[in-house]
Each structure stands twice: as structure tokens, then as C-alpha cells.
Amino acid sequence: MLEARLLQASILKGIVESVKDLVREANFDCSDSGISFQAMDESNVALSSFLLRAEGFETYRCDRNLSLGVRFSSLSKILKCANNDDIVVIRAEDDADVLNFVFESPDESKISEYQIKLLDIDGEHLSIPEQEFDCVIKMSSSEFSKLCRDMTLLGQTVVIDAAKEGVKFSTYGDIGAGSVLYKHSSSIDDSSSGSGGKGRGGSGGMSARGCSIELREPVSLELSLKYLNNFTKAAPLSDYVVISASNEIPVMVQFDVGDIGYIRYYLAPQIKD
């Protein structure tokens, strides 16, 4: 059986909200290391995935691997019944056809129980090669949300040009054109300066509009703004976003979710006709 106790319902709510418009239904793969998920949208353009590590839960038990077929619209409805600061217990028996949720108020004065029916889903897992990207951009997630919103006012796609000087996002459309250039800011790249203490991947020191750029090769990539805007629904889960890109391959957009895991999207690029 699976039994996982999560201290903040808001994490689960946020993850489901940031995936449900891209994926209708998918398997949650549960093992003793945690809960993970991977699924493409119907047009096979974007892949959404997340990982919640067992260590990130207050208690976690999974006796054998389970694949739980979940419809996101159902899950979203159930999770709307939980308050953000509720404790959530997720429970599934082996070979069960339902997934159980218990929501406990922090002061333990209210306990709600819900269940959703599970689905049989033919899981098609894509094998994504482990790859080094030529460019890794890290910026505040709220700034990334604003950038995608702003670009969408003008165009349907955005071109990301990453070079030594910085990274430029540009778009054009019927009413005109626009671009935003972020220069590499060292304020979020001080891990090598010997200041120490800060954990890797922390957002410490990042200014609201700062952007750190690690570059091996210049990268130029055109991407659909419709999908990028969908990805920004994960922004409330994380202070920053990491965009990893190489020329002519899908971009990876990752939001770290506290210490528990991450939500990660892949988006196929626009290619020349």
C-alpha cells in the first residue's frame, strides 16, 4: 500500500493546478523513493513531469510499486476541498480502484476524507536522454511569468537568444514587435565566490529581476508562448525557474518545489519550414 503524509496541501494543489490544463489524465508512479509522473499534452508538443521525493513527506510508506491512474480534473476538484495549510494524507491499497485523501486542519479540529476513482491508463513513458544543455538560465519565477505574459501581448512565439552578453527574449506580431534583454547578473551566481553557507539551488541573493546565465555555446530557439504561459502556472510553487536550452532540441523548464522535488516541463521548439 501507499501512505504518504504531506504537511502542506498547497504543494499538491499547486502541482495539480500547474499540470491540469496540459494533461487530462496520467499515471502517478509510486515507489519507495517517491511519487513521480510524466505525460505529454494531446498534441505531443509539451511534456509535464514532477517528482515528489519520499524524504520530502512527513511520513512515507510504499510497500510495492504502484501505478495510479488519475484524471487531473477530478484530482483538482478534490484538492479544492483542502485548505492550503491542511495536512494531506494520500492512501491507496494495493490493487485498489480508489485513491483516498484525508485533509487535517493544522490544529486537528477538522478532518475531511475524500476519494477519487482510479483509471486504467496505458502509460507511454518517453525516454528522455540525459543531456548537458548549452545554456542554463535562472531567473525569478514571477519575472518569468511577467515576461511570458508581456510577450504574449504581441506574438504567439518567442525567440530566446542566449549569448555571452545576456539573454534576449523577442517576439513580433500584427501590432508590432518587442524584446527584453537580461544581462547576466552575478548576484545570483556567487556560489563560486567563496561566500559559502548557501545551499546549492537556493534562491538566496537573487534580485527580483536578476538573471543568471551559464553558457557553453550561443543558443537561439523559438518557442510557443501558449505553452510557456501554461508552464508559468507552476511559478507560485517556486521562487525561481531554470530554463535549460540547446539549439534545435526541446527546452527544459524546471521549478524546484522546496526540498521535496520539482516540476519539470519539456517543450518542442518551433522549426523552420
Binding site: 505531443n44 509539451a46 518517453l126 526541446p250 518542442a268 518551433q270 522549426i271 523552420k272
Partner: peptide
Amino acid sequence: KTQQSTLMSFFGTP
């Protein structure tokens, strides 16, 4: 002019 590619052309199904 560009067009949208799909992930299938980059990632394989095992």
C-alpha cells in the same frame, strides 16, 4: 516562417 515540432521527433518511446 516556422512550425511547431513534436516531442516524438526528439524523444523515443522505449
